[in-house]
């Protein structure tokens, strides 16, 4: 088997999709000053609800929608606890992650009598071929033929860049994450913008989760996110909370993941070491060895009005 071929590029793109959706989601939340380590849980909730709805309706699109809606709802819980009730954002995120280990398993046990997975879905999201591009040799193979969430993730990056730096919403969201007091003194509703950021993170991470169960796979499997929410968090930090840099980080980490799958048992480098790459890079960047990652100034601090 060849180590580097087109296959590894296409699987890089597939494997980085949930990372991109999750990390861009996290970007909204953290730019608004709310640390979101609940991404892992949001992925699982999204994946589970998408699989369940797709199974019962036979429609993967409804599954995708269900994943998005569930993501928003769970993110709302995170917002409620950490914004309205001023709870610690890390602990709240941890609580949601633990909840995400239980809810899917218990409910799939109750629905299907199989706690560790949901039944296979007959129809998953279709792959889309892009006209013209699909006919170009090589490039067509790399760029075309993915499911909708894959294209959506790249659209999300571009839209996010635009929204963040060119719209009122983006300006205010960033202001709220940097200095809520200053924003408040100019009449910006801090609490509302914090909620917007958190809910958007739920929306995107929920879609990312749905991709795992009804786009990439055909069912929900217990703990199928396998730490991708945390890798997305790492990518967000490594990308210094900037949409394009975050995208690049996600692609690097997605590539590491693809490589690791390819290398399984093939050559001397242990897969665990390749899996560690995202985490080691993130520590280096947080310490300041590779540039310096400085989070939004007010992130992690509960905002008490007045």
């Amino acid at each position: 088997m060849e180590l580097f071929d087109i296959g590894i590029l296409t699987s890089t793109i597939r494997l980085s999709t949930p990372l991109i959706l999750c990390a861009i989601g996290g970007l909204y939340s953290e730019r608004g000053g709310v640390v979101n380590i609940a991404l892992e849980g949001l992925l699982l909730f999204g994946a589970f609800s998408a699989a369940v709805v797709a199974y019962y309706t036979g429609n993967p699109w409804l599954g995708l929608l269900a994943g998005a809606v569930t993501g928003v709802f769970i993110a709302f819980l995170h917002g409620l606890v950490s914004i309205t009730f001023l709870g610690d954002q890390i602990v709240s995120g941890m609580g949601i992650n633990i909840l995400a280990l239980g809810v899917p398993a218990v409910f799939s046990g109750a629905f299907f009598n199989t706690p560790s997975s949901t039944p296979s879905i007959e129809k998953i999201l279709p792959s889309l071929n892009i006209p013209v591009i699909e006919d170009i040799p090589l490039l067509g193979e790399i760029l075309s033929g993915y499911t909708v969430p894959v294209y959506l993730s790249y659209a999300a990056v571009i839209i996010t860049y635009f929204v963040l730096f060119y719209t009122i919403f983006g300006l205010r969201l960033r202001a709220v994450g940097e200095n809520p007091k200053a924003a408040e003194s100019l009449g910006v509703n801090v609490i509302r913008y914090k909620y917007y950021g958190v809910l958007l993170s739920g929306l995107l991470a929920g879609i990312g989760g749905a991709f795992l169960s009804v786009g990439h796979g055909t069912q929900f499997i217990k703990n199928m996110s396998a730490g991708r929410g945390y890798i997305a968090l790492a990518a967000l930090i490594f990308g210094k909370w900037h949409p394009f840099k975050t995208l690049l980080a996600c692609l690097i980490f997605g590539f590491a993941d693809a490589l690791q799958m390819r290398l399984q048992g093939v050559i001397g480098i242990p897969v665990q070491f390749i899996q560690m790459i995202p985490y080691i890079l993130t520590i280096l960047v947080i310490v300041g060895f590779i540039g310096k990652a400085v989070p939004p100034a007010a992130s992690g601090v509960p905002y008490r009005k007045g």
């Binding site: 300006l171 200095n179 200053a182 910006v188 100034a297």
Partner: peptide, 17 residues
């Protein structure tokens, strides 16, 4: 009361863009 790593224009127009 400033948002330190934004430029002067953004700081001025915030809330009334």
């Amino acid at each position: 009361l400033f948002i330190e790593n934004m430029d002067a224009v953004d700081n001025i127009i915030l809330g009334k863009e």
